[in-house]
Nucleic acid binder design. Structure first.
Lengths: 226, 226
DNA sequence: AATCAATTGCAAAATTTATACCAAAAAATG
DNA sequence: CATTTTTTGGTATAAATTTTGCAATTGATT
């Protein structure tokens, strides 16, 4: 994701803050969206789905804490980063803010450099978390990032489809995936492939990973067991 | 960078301050340069390019804020750290100072210990940021600043695109970058280039850096291995 | 238990797809 | 304008995916 693809929503009732913070973030290359109160903030958050939201705690009508809670209720915004702006000394707000689901807070008066570096740091973490899906299933380790699988210390390189199939099955060990489900997930339901195709791939996996790991449930599908 | 390579510029109209602060910093091993007023400070800043500048806010003729703004306008001094010296209670100066681009402030009366530790802390950050531009990946050293790559002691000069591509891949050794990702990062998704373009650049890199360093994951993308 | 129908396993072949490589054109650079 | 870098299209090659036909297995039914 490019920097200019990152949206930051800025919610504060003081236009001055909006301007200075907005300016600093814009000149760093981020897309900045602003809102002047809690309601508007929540609305824009839902609409724009920013990666990061900077929320003033003290605002008339709906304060930052409340807005934060509302935002967090939205499933699409679960992973959005939320940073609170608090006046120094409003100590309680840190606690309450973290309870409400904040990721960090910045105290006023705002130092542009601090703000920018904090935002950068958070977004770095965000990005890393985003890609860091390497799952361990018993003796298997599936590293989606590096596109490789480690089984009992041995690295196994798999072709795309086999890799996808294995990740799917191993994502829920024990669960039986119906053939339809598998086709949907691995092949996508646009492409129609014959019925035997899945078997073949399963066979390849059995050859490479181990025969016992894959159980056939006749008339239904396959499952991966550890 | 050695400590004795670090220059600190001290700007204050009071000779006493100059002396006491200067003495403390010198005995820490830093190179200290002094100036007795704003004009002189700005002039010396441009000439000496210190890593850190300590500026008194209250000075006759040109005050610290103004000097700071002038300094910041100089492209070479964008990353220079600027610390303000303010009398306690001059609260406005904090705000105005940060607006002008200051990184920190120290209130008078000056406590040498506080001063020194603050300077150290700031310079640590500065150094970290500074080196973050040249990354070492195994036998490779990528210097984004000077736009060159050192491999096994040999300097390799790369054209822009090849350089960008290599830095991308090497930034996360082992990670597979999908062709889309590569296009986004190196070419930017505004420009549309054909699919073979990436191959060709990879080939060039393989010729120059070494065949083994670049693995192809068919149907997915490429990765750099150390 | 034997039979039957349906389903899955399997191996090799066929097909499709992706990438490497090349040469040459186009664009940028100085 | 000469040189270097980047892009493109074409072809060769390698690899992955799918198909196919038959054998083996399973579960249900008698």
């Amino acid at each position: 994701m490019k920097k200019s693809d990152i949206k930051i929503l800025l919610v504060d009732d003081e236009p001055d803050i909006l301007e200075i913070v907005g300016y600093n973030l814009s000149s760093e290359g981020y897309q900045v969206i602003t809102a002047e109160n809690g309601q508007e903030g929540v609305k824009k958050a839902k609409k724009e789905k920013p990666q990061l939201i900077i929320l003033d705690v003290m605002m008339p009508e709906m304060d930052g804490i409340e807005a934060c809670e509302l935002i967090r209720k939205n499933p699409d915004l679960q992973n959005t980063l939320i940073v609170f702006l608090t006046a120094r000394g409003e100590d309680y707000s840190q606690v309450a803010g973290f309870d409400a689901g904040a990721d960090d807070y910045i105290t006023k008066p705002i130092k542009p450099k601090v703000l920018v570096s904090k935002v950068k740091a958070l977004l770095r973490r965000f990005r890393e978390e985003d890609v860091a899906d390497s799952v361990k299933i018993g003796s298997l380790e599936i590293n989606r990032d590096e596109y490789k699988i480690t089984s009992k210390g041995k690295e196994i390189v798999l072709p795309r489809k086999e890799f996808e199939l294995l990740s799917l099955l191993a994502s829920k060990p024990g669960k039986v995936f119906k053939r339809d489900e598998i086709l949907d997930a691995v092949w996508g339901n646009e492409v129609v492939v014959g019925g035997r195709t899945i078997d073949v791939h399963i066979r390849k996996l059995r050859e490479k990973i181990g025969d016992d790991s894959f159980k056939t449930i006749k008339g239904v599908g396959y499952k991966f067991v550890d």
